[in-house]
Design a protein around this nucleic acid. Sequence first.
DNA 1: TCAGATTCTGACAACGATGTCACGATTTGG
DNA 2: CCAAATCGTGACATCGTTGTCAGAATCTGA
Lengths: 349, 349
Amino acid sequence: MTSLSESDAGSSARPTMRHVAKLAGVAVKTVSRVVNGEPNVAPETARRVLDAARALDYQPDPHAGNLRRSDRRTRTLGLLVSSVDNPFAGAVHRAVEDVAVEHGVAVFASSLDDDPEREREAVAAFLRRRVDGLILTTASTNQAYLEPELRRGTPVVFVDREPRGVETDAVVSDNFGGAARAAEHLLARGHRRFAYLGDLHSLQTARHRRRGFLEALDHAGIPVADVPVIEDLHDPERAREALLRLLDGPNPPTAVFSSQNLVTVGALRALRERGRHRDTALVGFDDVELADLLEPGLTVVAQHPEDLGRIAAERVFAKLNGDGSPSQRIVVSTTLIARGSGEIPPSGM
Amino acid sequence: MTSLSESDAGSSARPTMRHVAKLAGVAVKTVSRVVNGEPNVAPETARRVLDAARALDYQPDPHAGNLRRSDRRTRTLGLLVSSVDNPFAGAVHRAVEDVAVEHGVAVFASSLDDDPEREREAVAAFLRRRVDGLILTTASTNQAYLEPELRRGTPVVFVDREPRGVETDAVVSDNFGGAARAAEHLLARGHRRFAYLGDLHSLQTARHRRRGFLEALDHAGIPVADVPVIEDLHDPERAREALLRLLDGPNPPTAVFSSQNLVTVGALRALRERGRHRDTALVGFDDVELADLLEPGLTVVAQHPEDLGRIAAERVFAKLNGDGSPSQRIVVSTTLIARGSGEIPPSGM
DNA sequence: TCAGATTCTGACAACGATGTCACGATTTGG
DNA sequence: CCAAATCGTGACATCGTTGTCAGAATCTGA
């Protein structure tokens, strides 16, 4: 028994097609046709249906429709980033959202805190919800667990970090080139004593940046084995402590490269604390808000998270629209922005 | 006809309960019982079902279940903020997400760019998707359009800005008190010539901050009519230009209050540009990354977006769990953080 | 004018799951 | 040892919607 007739007036229950059909005096299928703009409905009938729908404030249930419909799209996208509370991720997110809204698609976002286990859980949660596609800043070293889903045809695109163990698209910054560019910039000012402050060694991007930086030094004839390489710095505090130790050591660097924005913040604090910020060069990877207002201004290798996000989202939609081209690896170049801190010459010169 | 029997091996189609039931040699209802941990299934049967489910990599479709299930929850939440690419919103988002994951709920986020029309569209899009609740930094002046949805029992909680035209919960910063506190802080240093740089007058929070600041000045006997109040500054560039005009004018302020973080950034730039950053006091509303590394350090009235987000999310879940208490307006206090710029005494003293 | 095409409409099954109920097999208790 | 309660299981209707098909009404053209 259906309660269609009862409490029709002030009913707070959500109206369905059957309510609309009853009010308009037609069959549900006709309501369906009108609501979906299918052809072959008499104008007079359509008007009655629309009036009824409006009167009841009817909103079709997309999940019910999906169940029956052939294409089976939820018009939903999953985005997995290190943390939504993080400027880089925020910019990626915004770019993804902008592309998604154009396609009438809503975005689920989830923070991973660079924890592989959270990644697995979050991906599973999104797939259970049947997202149409996934954009993923992976935190794990191997993503073979995505294989069954990829075989089912779900588009997955990696941003910022590249996949391992699965064959799919990736959109990444030129980490190697950007870090090399930073090294060259410092070398050109005559520096010979460097320090490298790195993010978690488990992150592929961190390893690329390290390699880019060190290889450029090597090319310039710097004995790389002597360069202090401090890694696994994931927050400002750890980075600060690491740099303080170097500054207080026997042979402090004249030029510092910090491989990520939180690390850069820690490095800035350490330099201030020792009053070395005007005579020690610093280049950070990734741009930072207010970098131009510091004294000296902060020189950075800026990434372009908006481009990463936009391109990744466009790839997802291309795949959803049947683009079957083989997996691509799209590299977005970086931009060195000189603001002062990277142009400081070696002290004692 | 169902294709249950065909291509069972390397099938890439998503398996359903029927596939599992067939493989386990039981009825779908039994699979349902096992998957949902319902009682009264023989251990041996349960094992067979679980084996089959695992073999097929079966994942239940929550949308289909929802259709029939009584509680009708999508385990989904909609969050609407000014822009996901904005540190304040990012912090709110992260806090909301943390509460949501504890409840097994995923979060849709959408950026409004403070555009009322986008708000309407985004809210409609989320409601069509049947989110269980809505957390909203409204961009519109009146939200009566939410009335029907509220009557249906959908929990809606406002963050950062208060509702108008609807009766529902809100979690906001103490905008009035925070701005007043900033005024008192500056007055205590002996300032008499102030300037107020404000956000869009259409935003309620902006009006509260303005009122808080000016009333505190008034209490102190400052002729408020003479205080330049520049409003509708929504980005750094406009704020910069506005403050430059004041600084170049006949009677420049000795103390500036900027009512929002983008405005603060513009104000900082203007002060730098005129070389007035060491003799003009500045207090900003809302904290800013790296504020401690500027020279002088930036004094701010910090909000606590993590608290706003967390409390808002907790209210949503309380309501979902049947909390029927009347609408609350929860005020989160602000914290003045003195870092230097706000402690500059009036020049010429 | 009438056969055939076209337009409009609705009955019914189906999507993938769960709620209800009924039935046979076991267990319990007096 | 038998009636009653409990356990294990499956058939069937149902959630809100759309795909299929068929039938009635209208239109077309010779």
